[in-house]
Design a protein around this nucleic acid. Structure first.
Lengths: 269, 269
DNA sequence: TGCTTAATGTCGAAA
DNA sequence: TTTCGACGTTAAGCA
């Protein structure tokens, strides 16, 4: 268990105190949140000016800066990453300047009054962002619809233990050959090929006579992996998780569509 | 002077208290900021899942919802506007569901632990956002000052419909040739060249005799685009939007200086 | 690094 | 309401 983040909050700090805290926060790579009345200027690829108003400013540890107005999805001004952020006090206001190197852009925020200043330390977020389907869901879908890999496949088993690991899908093709299917959610690399090949070797030990095919199923594959795969006599089948997801949604009982649809159904009922 | 916003802050509220506060905040259209460990699911045009991690959640009075990870410019999940936001307590977590009507999309955030919860009331931001030198403005400026492209140009028309699209500027040069000007605010690519060429082809249909020049006006051009442009007998004129911007500022009656003057007047008053 | 292409693009204006 | 095009588009993939 990772340690909890430490969060420091200031209510209505004066200009000097706010400047000091922001300076420290930037230096220490805190996640900084500021509710403030400010004006903003930007110049770079384009240019913009925004007069005084209440806004939320976010300064992230990696130098991303966002200025959000009270409405709307998109920030009114921003800096995807800052090369330099500096903080000054000028005429009764904190002036925060964020400079981006390439393209050369500068964002200047003049904080006239700070309502709330938050410095968060030690925020940790290691979770993987999974788009559309995770590996198990893709594997499930293929098990239900093996034709997306190849016509005439008959599923024999799922997650069968073979040697060190588990074969995602074991099947037979229309000529009754064994087919081992290895599923990857993202671009397949050489490791994925080696993994698939190791399963084939293991299965060959048990069935020295039977012809065994190996198919790597993934949205894309690296060049090196493709070369290795070909040299080992394996096959690659491209799938599109977005398309599979759309198809899966249409199904009534897919594992995937259950959770959110359930909610929607409950709302209706 | 408008009244100051009122800001309510909770440190480490329990799940039930957090749920109560968020429910109230949503109902009262507060600007809500939450630092929390949460997991997120989204389904709509796309779909995604994100496991547990520390994030910043923003819920705006207009129903915009943003989930920001500790790094990066863009939110990991979002909802530009919510038709309904509802809040429940489920298995020791606050579950925040934001539903968008069209397109039908749902964002579900499961808050496992709330580090900080902020409800801001009465944020006011009436300032006008002024942007300088978008494509239309550059085109306007060139129409007023065709010499920045070439000496002796006479403007014939603006935004004239030709075939599929609209020619930015149609002019005649000092030798009375037609000149089609295509304006880009950013690096011109092959598409921009093709677009310009298609206008020329259309104009040639109507005027088979007349010589027609095509000039692509942009701050820069990709290598491939330049090759294509040359091979088609077209021309490229580099302009600097920042410089045009400075020049436009000096003008009394430009669209630019008008709004800027307005802005300065308001600042003074 | 430059360039091309897709995006849960978003957003505004015009038809 | 849908369509269309610009955007400080951003962001990922590839040469």
């Amino acid at each position: 268990m990772s340690e909890e983040p430490h969060i420091h909050v200031l209510h209505n700090p004066g200009i000097n105190e706010a400047a000091r805290q922001i300076t420290q926060g930037v230096a220490q790579r805190d996640f900084i949140i500021i509710l403030t009345r400010c004006s903003v200027e930007y110049e770079g690829r384009g240019a913009s000016k925004l007069g005084s108003g209440d806004r939320l400013i976010i300064v992230k540890p990696d130098g991303a800066v966002l200025v959000h107005r009270p409405t709307g999805y998109s920030p009114v001004n921003w800096q995807p990453e800052s090369h330099v952020i500096n903080v000054d006090v000028l005429k009764d206001a904190v002036v925060l300047r964020s400079v981006r190197r390439r393209p050369k852009e500068i964002l200047v925020i003049r904080l006239e009054q700070v309502y709330l200043l938050v410095r968060a330390k030690g925020l940790t977020d290691k979770a993987e962002f999974i788009e559309y389907m995770d590996e198990a869901e893709i594997s499930d879908y293929i098990a239900r619809h093996p034709e997306v890999v190849e016509q005439g496949l008959q599923i024999i088993s799922r997650e069968r233990r073979v040697g060190e690991g588990y074969v995602d899908i074991l099947a037979r093709d229309k000529d009754n050959n064994y087919v081992i299917i290895e599923v990857k959610r993202v671009t397949a690399n050489e490791d994925a090929v080696k993994q698939l090949y190791s399963y084939i070797e293991e299965l060959r030990k048990a069935n020295p006579e039977a012809p065994i095919r190996g198919i790597l199923v993934a949205p894309s594959i690296t060049k090196d992996a493709l070369i290795l795969l070909n040299s080992l006599g394996l096959e690659y089948k491209q799938i599109d998780p977005a398309r599979l997801h759309r198809e899966a949604k249409k199904e009534k009982h897919s594992r995937y569509s259950r959770s959110l649809l359930e909610y929607l159904e409950r709302k209706k009922g």
